[in-house]
C-alpha cells in the first residue's frame, strides 16, 4: 500500500466484492439448504453451476435466444439435473453413513466435469455477458459500476427475499423447515420427506443456474472446471455464515466476496484465497458453528 489511499478506488473494490459475494451467496444457498434438510454436503453443486453456464452459453451465445429465456432454460435444465442426481445417486444412500454420501457426491462431481469435457472439450470458451445494462458512472466518472455488478447484487437481494418469504409463508416452505428440524417427526406429521428433499435440490439447482450465468457474465471464461473453485468458496461461505441457515449463507457469501476482493487489491493476488480460508478458520475458532449458526448441545 505505497500509493495514497484512494477512497473511490476502495469503493469500487468494495462494490465488486459485494457483487462477487452475491454470486457466492446464491451458490451457498444451494449448499446450505441441502445441508439443512438432507444433512449432506453436496460436492457436486459447483458442477451444476458449470452445466448451467454452458446451457446459457449455447442458448444465448450460439443460438441467440433472448437472455432471460436462456437463463430460464438453464434453470430448467439444472433443476432437472439436480433432481435426477438426487433421485439416482443420493436417495439410495439416505440412511447410509454421511461419508458414503459425500464420496458419492464427489463421484457425481467428477462425472459432470468429465461429461462436460467430452461434450464441449476442455478448451475455455469466452462467455458473452447476459446483462444488457450499461455501466453506471457516479461522482463525475470517478466511480464506474458495471451493469453486471448491479444486476448481480439486485438479483441476489431479490432471490434472498423471495426465498425467505417462501420458507416462512408457504406450506412447502414449512415442510422444509420441519424436515430440517427433525426428519422422523416430520414424516410422522405427514410431511412427504422425499418430495421435500427433491424440492430442495430443485430450488438449489435453479439458483445455481442463475449464479452460473451471473458469474460467467462477470468472469467470462467457461470451461469444465469453472464451477469447482466457486463451489468450494461458496461452501466455505455457507460454513462461514453457519451452515443450514439461509441468512447465514447470504451474510457469509457477501463477507467472503468482500474479503477476497479487498485482499486481492491491497495485499496479494496470489495469497487472496489463503486469506479467505484463514478468515474461515479464525471465525470457526471463535464461533464454532459459524456466524449465524445454531449451537447444538450434544447429549449422551
Amino acid at each position: 500500500m505505497s500509493e495514497v489511499f484512494d477512497a473511490m478506488q476502495f469503493l469500487s473494490y468494495l462494490i465488486n466484492g459485494i457483487s462477487l459475494g452475491s454470486v457466492y451467496a446464491l451458490i451457498a444457498l444451494g449448499y446450505t439448504m441441502v445441508y439443512g434438510i438432507a444433512k449432506m454436503l453436496n460436492f457436486a453443486h459447483g458442477d451444476v453451476i458449470m452445466i448451467g453456464s454452458y446451457v446459457v452459453f449455447f442458448a444465448f451465445g450460439s443460438f441467440g435466444l433472448n437472455p432471460i429465456v436462456s437463463v430460464l432454460l438453464s434453470m430448467v435444465v439444472c433443476t432437472l439435473l439436480g433432481v435426477t442426481v438426487e433421485r439416482v445417486a443420493y436417495r439410495p444412500l439416505r440412511e447410509a453413513p454421511s461419508l458414503a454420501v459425500l464420496i458419492t457426491a464427489i463421484g457425481v462431481s467428477y462425472l459432470l466435469q468429465q461429461t462436460a469435457q467430452l461434450m464441449w472439450s476442455s478448451n475455455p470458451k469466452s462467455f458473452t455477458s447476459v446483462v444488457g445494462l450499461r455501466a453506471v458512472s457516479l461522482f463525475d466518472g470517478q466511480l464506474m459500476i458495471s451493469g453486471e455488478t448491479i444486476v448481480t447484487i439486485l438479483s441476489c437481494i431479490l432471490i434472498m427475499l423471495a426465498l425467505t418469504w417462501f420458507v416462512n409463508h408457504t406450506s412447502a416452505g414449512h415442510a422444509m423447515l420441519a424436515v430440517s428440524e427433525d426428519r422422523g417427526a416430520a414424516q410422522l406429521m405427514g410431511v412427504n420427506v422425499n418430495a421435500t428433499i427433491s424440492l430442495t435440490f430443485a430450488i438449489g439447482s435453479a439458483l445455481a443456474a442463475i449464479a452460473g450465468a451471473l458469474l460467467c457474465s462477470s468472469y467470462p471464461t467457461l470451461q469444465p472446471t469453472t464451477g469447482a473453485m466457486p463451489g468450494i468458496k461458496a461452501f466455505v461461505a455457507a460454513v462461514f455464515g453457519g451452515i443450514g441457515s439461509i441468512p447465514g449463507a447470504f451474510v457469509g457469501g457477501i463477507l467472503l466476496g468482500i474479503i477476497e476482493n479487498l485482499s486481492k487489491a491491497y495485499i496479494s493476488t496470489q495469497l487472496s484465497d489463503a486469506i479467505v480460508f484463514l478468515m474461515l478458520i479464525v471465525v470457526l475458532l471463535v464461533k464454532p458453528t459459524g456466524l449465524l449458526g445454531k449451537k447444538v448441545n450434544v447429549k449422551v
Partner: peptide
C-alpha cells in the same frame, strides 16, 4: 465410484 458406493453402502 458412484456405483460401488451405492452397492456397498445403501442399506
Amino acid at each position: 465410484l458412484i456405483v460401488v458406493m451405492i452397492f456397498s453402502q445403501s442399506p
